[in-house]
Design a protein around this nucleic acid. Structure first.
Lengths: 245, 245
DNA sequence: CGTTTAATTGAAAGCAGTCAAACTATGTGG
DNA sequence: CCACATAGTTTGACTGCTTTCAATTAAACG
């Protein structure tokens, strides 16, 4: 008898982080009709202009939101880790205003839009939890605008590395000492509003200063406090759960 | 017997734009305990780190969200026009992650946080309307990140001018031919991630090309289509109501 | 009006972009 | 196991958009 973990366990953990859920709420989540789908790297989940009829939850792997300018420049708007709900916005909005793309090979749980809407209306605690998740994502969007608009390349890059470290840590997916960064330098550039060439130079600059170690895709932070400082990073905008000391 | 319009009429119009409300919903909104407050230019409504116990709705004048880097650089994150709810995020989040500041002299309706939470839980249509409003604001945050991250100064500025024109038009506060821009060039710079000096140059560049007229604070758009084009502007991300032809 | 705030302009400096080439991984097929 | 192909990283030289610094002009305000 194999002990299988429900596909939405991570999503549940994500939602419960900010709002305690009732036992019925948990049951409702686990009763959601889901289809699990495996996606190869870089595949699109949602394209701008589409009218999606499903909501997806990231189960494993990484994903990101992005928009393109008319001449094809790409801006990555947010990164997503397992447990994140990828298109809550389509609960209310009919037409997608940005693209959602998978970063690595990933598996997602597909939930019919109507089922997710029912969940959303099912209980006040669920509504609050879902709303909280939305709000925190909006807070991350704001910080990214600040990052791209007002910090120089080095700080911008350091900030992104800090954010990812903290988020993985909170979701229990990294030990806080480092992680496998799933992005190429081109991805990093698109997330930071920089060119890949400049990303490379800033990466090496951080490395040269002993703020960063790299091994294949693995990044480590030999001097976390100093990196935070260089990045002008504070985790307030991530609204970390109280429990953390 | 003077015919007075309720202070929250514009907010109601704002919420109803994307989600039809019931008569009871409207009554609930008008039954909200509000205190109207007049604020001088530049006053703060919320400061990062605070724990607000009220929600404010902008009745007249303009406001904006902003964040500061450690060394005092300011990034304006969004602009707000009458009818906008200014701190929905504090419905769920306890600590403010950014500053909310008034641009011009403005009056705001102050609603106790708990009353707004009750409104939010009062009916599914209200919850949907409030959620929609949130989602659309999140969409604007995303577009701003794209704007600041991937467009050059000229396009960035043109984009902001387009967005403001469309939003005022939709809310019925401008005729679509132009408007009183309530921002100084310093504000514009902080919204665009540029210096005021460069904003000035780009403003004059647009003016020289016949894309923009300025008279005191009034801006006009002699060639709207071309400006849209220069700005790489599409109103999709604003999720304009269907009604518009 | 005088004073303060905002807009404008010029010259010089710099961060980041562009272009191009070399180098390193990683993977594939023979 | 090597040859080749592909994707990603690294470097260098040069360009350029934007900033910085400073000074001047215009507008707003009491």
């Amino acid at each position: 008898m194999t002990e299988t973990v429900h596909e939405l366990t991570l999503m549940l953990r994500h939602l419960e982080r900010h709002m305690p859920l009732t036992a019925e709420d948990r049951d409702r989540i686990f009763a959601l009709p889901v289809t699990v789908r495996d996606l190869p790297p870089s595949s699109y989940l949602v394209r701008e202009g589409e009218r999606p009829d499903v909501c997806s939850v990231l189960i494993s792997g990484y994903a990101f939101r992005q928009k393109l300018t008319r001449d094809g420049a790409r801006q990555i708007l947010s990164l997503h880790i397992p447990g994140d709900i990828l298109d809550l916005q389509h609960l209310m909005l009919d037409v997608a205003d940005h693209n959602i793309q998978v970063l690595t090979r990933a598996s997602v749980a597909i939930v019919p839009r109507e089922a997710m809407r029912d969940l959303w209306h099912a209980s006040p605690t669920l509504a609050d939890a879902i709303m909280s998740s939305m709000q925190i994502e909006a807070s991350r969007f704001r910080e990214w605008t600040l990052n791209v608009g007002r910090r120089d390349g080095r700080a911008r890059l350091a900030h992104l590395l800090c954010e990812f470290a903290v988020r993985l840590d909170v979701q229990g997916l990294a030990d806080g000492k480092g992680y496998e960064l799933p992005m190429t330098q081109e991805h990093l550039g698109d997330a930071l509003g920089l060119t890949p060439v400049h990303v490379n130079r800033m990466l090496r600059s951080l490395e040269a200063d002993g703020l960063l170690t790299r091994n294949r895709r693995h990044v480590g932070f030999p001097n976390w406090e100093w990196l935070r400082d260089v990045a002008d990073f504070s985790d307030r905008y991530l609204h970390p759960p109280r429990t953390a000391a």
